[in-house]
């Protein structure tokens, strides 16, 4: 059976992934829309920055975030002046780090979905008196729904699976920053292979179920 700390770690992991996915839906949608529609020179550089977490070692990302959010970093100075203290080694510090880390997993599927819609439905909506904002909600969102599902599932699953960034930013505080992946690491360090096995199996089944849902459902959504 899973121990209480295991369950606590799983709960924390799900909360982190859920909050991160919600925030990224709000931030990632306009960024993806801009990347899909803009013809600006900035499109290339911005697209590259968005994709960086795909190739960067999580420890590198975590290192820079740690510096930025630390007491002497720009973000840390800001949070301190707002009376929030510093973010590293807190749950919200983990959320900020996860938002950066999972950014491309939200933006890229959305960008593809928006690009696939093309110009025509937007032009049609305009000739039917829909303003651009109206068009976005009445035409783009419904047509891009499969893209939103894919992006949401990928972001959630990817956040569940993070480890390096969590260690750098969150450390290993039970109930605050000790997520499932870190808990497994702890079990292994402590030679508790039985506990590690059980939690690892839960993660494996969860990940497989998520991906199965995604791939099995996708061909229908394409129609």
């Amino acid at each position: 059976m899973l121990t209480d700390t295991d369950l606590q770690a799983i709960g924390l992991t799900l909360r982190l992934a859920g909050v991160t996915t919600l925030i990224l839906l709000l931030i990632g949608t306009p960024v993806a829309w801009w990347l899909a529609r803009s013809q600006s020179w900035w499109k290339g550089p911005v697209g590259a920055v968005v994709a960086l977490p795909l190739v960067l070692p999580p420890s590198v990302l975590g290192f820079y975030l740690l510096l930025a959010m630390g007491p002497h970093g720009p973000v840390g100075q800001l949070t301190q002046s707002l009376g929030l203290g510093t973010l590293p080694f807190t749950f919200w510090g983990l959320v900020v780090a996860s938002v950066f880390y999972s950014f491309p997993f939200m933006v890229q599927p959305l960008q593809n979905a928006f690009e696939a819609i093309g110009d025509r439905p937007l032009e049609v909506a305009a000739t039917l008196r829909a303003s651009p904002l109206d068009t976005f909600f009445s035409v783009v969102l419904p047509l891009a729904r499969p893209g939103f599902l894919t992006a949401g599932i990928l972001t959630f699953a990817h956040t569940v699976g993070e480890f390096g960034v969590v260690l750098m930013i969150g450390g290993n505080i039970p109930g605050v920053t000790r997520v499932a992946s870190v808990q497994i690491y702890d079990h292994v360090e402590a030679m508790e292979y039985g506990d590690a096995h059980r939690l690892a199996a839960v993660m494996l089944i969860f990940s497989f179920a998520v991906l199965l849902a995604l791939y099995a459902w996708r061909p229908n959504a394409r129609k």
Partner: peptide, 9 residues
């Protein structure tokens, strides 16, 4: 803009 023009296309 297009959406402010009373036209059908």
């Amino acid at each position: 803009p297009t959406h402010a023009r009373p036209l059908g296309l």
